[in-house]
Amino acid sequence: MMRRAVILALSLVLGATAAQAAEGETAASPPLSPLDAYAEAAATTILAEQNCPGTHLKAGRLTTLRLAAKVAPAQEATLEAKLRSRATELRRRLAAEGKAAFCDAALDAFGPQGSVAKDVLVR
């Protein structure tokens, strides 16, 4: 469930790579904007670093995702609000699904073999 949401959220930011990863999965909602997709990626990876033992975020790789989303200086306040909102939603999912499921989904999407973006998270 979370993996699909993350993959779909980043499909606009990462283009064909994410689209290929999501192939065969159907979207329950319309695609997110690049700003929303980046907020989803950032919130997911930051929470994974905080909650998944031994997991570390590679800041340079997250920066690459931010650059791909083309976050403009005028969007900073909007991005901050989106990050807070996404983090709140992901914390609810974390509580509902448990750490193991959350960590597995985050690593599947952003780990060394990440289906959305590789090497953003490492163990």
Rank of each mutant, 00 (worst) to 15 (best):
S85P: 02
L12T: 15
L8D: 15
L121C: 05
T64Q: 12
D119K: 06
A117D: 07
Y38H: 08
R84W: 02
A68W: 04
S11Y: 03
A100N: 09
Y38W: 07
L90G: 05
P34H: 03
R61W: 01
K58Y: 05
R3S: 15
L35V: 10
Y38D: 07
Y38N: 02
A96P: 00
R84M: 11
C52Q: 05
C103I: 01
G111M: 01
S33N: 03
A9L: 04
A27C: 10
G54M: 06
R93A: 07
V13N: 07
E40V: 14
F102G: 02
A37S: 15
A39Y: 06
A43L: 00
L94T: 01
I46A: 11
A95R: 09
T44Y: 05
P30H: 10
L94P: 01
A77R: 06
T45H: 01
R86H: 08
P112E: 14
A16F: 04
A95H: 09
N51I: 01
R4C: 05
P53G: 12
G98S: 04
L35I: 13
I46M: 12
L107R: 08
A5V: 12
L57A: 10
A101Y: 04
P53V: 09
L47H: 00
T63K: 10
A69C: 09
V116M: 05
S11E: 15
L121K: 01
Q75K: 00
R91E: 13
T55S: 07
D119R: 10
R61I: 04
A41T: 02
L12M: 12
L62H: 06
S11M: 14
A101S: 12
A87K: 08
R86N: 06
A69K: 05
T88N: 14
E25V: 08
L79I: 05
T45R: 02
A42V: 03
K58E: 13
L35Q: 10
A101V: 08
L32A: 10
P34R: 02
D108H: 08
R61P: 06
E89R: 13
R123D: 08
Q113T: 12
S115L: 11
R91S: 09
P112I: 11
T88H: 11
K70Q: 15
V6R: 00
R61V: 10
A41Y: 01
R84A: 15
A87P: 04
E76Y: 08
L14G: 10
V116Q: 00
N51T: 14
A101N: 10
R61M: 07
A77L: 05
A72E: 13
